[in-house]
Simulated scan of single mutants.
Amino acid sequence: MSERDDEEREFDLKWADGAEHKEPSARARMLAARWKDNPPGPVPFRADPEPRRARRRSPGRAPGRSSWVSTALVFGCVAAVIVLLGYINFRGSA
């Protein structure tokens, strides 16, 4: 763009921002027309939180089994695989 275009654009923005009357957006006009016949009811700033429901257990989880048991089972399997791979490597190199 040339410098002249920038000056004209800046002038247009200043002229538009300085207008005394600004036309509302299409949404604002639509809502004003809708609310003219049927105004909305009062709405609180923040709605009351809904009460929390009790957490349901997953269908695949055994009753009474806590999460640390699952974690211990995974670590045990990983340790068994490491020992097995070490044993295979030890037998293969001899």
Rank of each mutant, 00 (worst) to 15 (best):
S2I: 09
S2E: 05
E3I: 05
R4L: 14
E7A: 15
E8C: 10
R9P: 00
R9G: 02
F11P: 00
F11N: 07
D12A: 15
D12H: 09
D12V: 04
L13T: 03
K14A: 14
K14P: 01
A16S: 11
G18M: 02
G18W: 00
G18R: 05
G18S: 08
A19I: 03
E20R: 11
H21M: 08
K22C: 08
K22Q: 14
P24W: 03
S25A: 13
S25C: 12
S25H: 10
A26G: 05
R27N: 11
A28L: 06
A28Q: 15
A28C: 05
R29N: 07
R29D: 02
A33F: 10
A33I: 13
R34K: 15
R34S: 09
W35N: 14
W35C: 06
K36V: 03
K36D: 11
D37C: 05
N38P: 01
P39I: 09
P39N: 03
P40R: 11
G41D: 06
V43I: 13
V43L: 10
P44G: 00
F45G: 01
F45E: 05
R46E: 02
A47K: 01
A47M: 03
A47T: 00
P49S: 03
P49R: 07
E50I: 06
P51T: 03
R52W: 06
R52Y: 09
R53W: 04
R53V: 06
A54T: 09
R55A: 11
R55E: 07
R56M: 06
P59N: 04
G60A: 15
R61M: 13
A62E: 13
A62I: 08
P63Q: 06
P63K: 12
P63M: 03
G64K: 04
S66C: 07
S66L: 14
S67V: 11
S67D: 14
W68Y: 08
S70D: 15
S70G: 13
S70H: 14
T71L: 10
T71A: 15
A72Q: 04
L73E: 12
L73Q: 07
V74E: 00
V74P: 00
V74L: 09
F75W: 08
F75N: 01
G76H: 00
G76K: 01
G76S: 04
A79F: 01
A79D: 00
A79Y: 00
I82L: 14
I82P: 01
I82S: 02
L84E: 03
L85V: 12
G86E: 06
Y87P: 00
Y87N: 09
I88H: 02
I88Y: 04
I88P: 01
N89Q: 13
F90N: 05
R91Y: 12
R91H: 06
R91L: 14
S93D: 09
